[in-house]
Design a protein around this nucleic acid. Structure first.
Length: 476
DNA sequence: ACTAATGATTATTA
DNA sequence: TAATAATCATTAGT
């Protein structure tokens, strides 16, 4: 028992100085023997047996033996081996052994309640889960930083974003590597230590009674000690990951403005779908591809744009006009191409896709304006009522704006557009000419309330109210 | 330096 | 769950 305590203490010191195994290994021999002698001292006479009643030579003999045991560690290894051999062959050895067995029996220090402790430590589980989630533990995913770098290189504009990402991953890999090497080291040390202790105990079992169960228990103690060290490692690894993560999150706040081209594309889509600026998932993907940004960036952009547009429509008038004109020109080209091809339902040019969309947009916006008008008259225009009252007529005019665009396109095209419209309306859930993607989300149908009320796609012709007009809203 | 613009994040909502 | 609204933090124009 005392021996096991000593070993446990040793493992404590081991936790402190993992690197100095040899020293610990050595010390364990010394301490254990010393501890043994303490226990022996309780039941047996002291080494030199100077109790006055000592008339018996046997006791002297035992005293000598114990003394030798005590001093065995002070001698060199060879000497000690020889002494040990001598002791083992001593005629008193079996007697001493049986005495020890008896003592052990009496003191009842056998393995009691070996407490098969295996309630998985909740904290350890938490740590494990977190490490697993963060990709530190568990299977290596992806090609690590190499794959990240490759992806960054491949995706052009998105590289900026990925560079930071790969940086993060590189650091994570570093942590991961350290974690694994340390874990391996611990494992190895644990095994070495266990075998060492087991050998030691087996060796000692020749001089004192040690049951296999005790050895097992000892191994259990050692393993528990090592797993507590492991937990420390896991804990500090978790901390490191958390720190890295927080830094990365901070870094992620850094932003870069999208390229002019990207904003152009996004704005084009936004203003040509002003009545329902909610791109479907597919549309988002396409926009993301075109702009070399991620889908979530597209979502962010539209979220921001919608809210900012709605907040201060006046401010965006100029922009709206600009893009409306642009799309009108596009539509004109597309329509012209459609006329030339006179193949309304098999659009092959990229522009024809736009043309269709524009057509749809115009329909939409006309409708939305109508609903808007009725809403306005019933007095349900919400926060925009005051500033928009002036825009009312402009909104009406913007209906003409459509026809204005049509006029721009050319009256002769109008009939063709009409046939197109027919084709479109006939083709239930028609697809985008570009990739067969449905460019309109279902929001088209059910988003009337929120957006269209607030939105007042104002006149393309008249840039009436300047940006600084009296919109009650005060932007930051 | 100050401010507007803008991309991203967070909390709330339907 | 996606959209909104508010807010943060950086960029960019003056």
């Amino acid at each position: 028992m005392s021996f096991s305590i000593c070993v446990a203490q040793c493992t404590d010191s081991l936790a402190a100085t993992m690197d100095d195994q040899a020293r610990i290994m050595q010390s364990i021999g010394g301490v254990s023997l010393a501890g043994h002698s303490v226990q022996g001292g309780m039941a047996l006479p002291p080494p030199h047996g100077h109790d006055g009643t000592d008339g018996d030579g046997r006791k002297q003999d035992i005293g000598d033996i114990l003394h030798q045991i005590m001093t065995i560690t002070d001698q060199s290894l060879d000497e000690a081996q020889a002494k040990k051999h001598g002791l083992n062959c001593h005629r008193m050895k079996p007697a001493l052994f049986s005495v020890l067995c008896e003592i052990k029996e009496k003191t009842g220090l056998s393995i009691r309640g070996a407490q098969e402790e295996d309630p998985p430590d909740p904290q350890l589980m938490r740590l494990d889960n977190m490490l697993l989630a963060e990709g530190v533990a568990g299977p290596e995913k992806g090609g690590g930083s190499a794959a990240a770098a490759a992806a960054a290189a491949a995706s052009g504009g998105a590289a900026d974003n990925s560079i930071e990402h790969s940086d993060y991953r590189a650091k994570l890999t570093q942590i991961r590597q350290i974690y694994h090497t340390e874990l391996e080291k611990y494992e190895q040390a644990c095994n070495e230590f266990t075998t060492h202790v087991m050998n030691l105990l087996r060796e000692q079992s020749r001089t004192r009674p040690i049951s296999p169960k005790e050895i097992e228990r000892m191994v259990g103690i050692i393993h528990r000690k090592f797993s507590s060290i492991q937990m420390q490692l896991k804990q500090s690894t978790c901390e490191a990951v958390m720190i890295l993560r927080s830094r990365f999150l901070d870094a992620r706040r850094k932003r870069r403005n999208f390229s002019k081209q990207a904003t152009e594309i996004l704005n084009e889509y936004f203003y040509s779908h002003l009545s329902n600026p909610y791109p479907s998932e597919e549309a988002k993907e396409e926009l993301a591809k075109k702009c070399s940004i991620t889908v979530s960036q597209v979502s962010n952009w539209f979220g921001n744009k919608r809210i900012r547009y709605k907040k201060n429509i006046g401010k965006f008038q100029e922009e709206a006009n600009l893009y409306a004109a642009k799309t009108a020109v596009n539509a004109a080209h597309a329509a012209a191409a459609a006329v030339q091809n006179s193949q309304a339902n098999s659009p092959t040019t990229p522009n024809s896709g736009f043309q269709m969309k524009d057509e749809e947009f115009q329909l939409d916006s006309a409708e939305s304006k109508n609903t808007l008008l009725s809403n306005m008259f019933t007095g349900s225009s919400g926060s925009f009522s005051l500033p928009n009252s002036g825009d009312m007529f402009l909104s009406m005019q913007s209906l003409n704006g459509d026809s204005y665009q049509g006029a721009q396109v050319g009256a002769n095209v109008q009939s063709q557009v009409d046939t197109l419209r027919h084709v479109i309306s006939q083709t239930a859930g028609y697809n985008d000419a570009l990739g067969g993607n449905p460019m309109y989300s279902q929001h088209n149908l059910n988003a009337n309330g929120g957006w269209q009320d607030a939105t007042t796609p104002s006149s393309v012709i008249s840039p009436t109210e300047g940006p600084g007009s009296v919109h009650s809203d005060t932007s930051n």
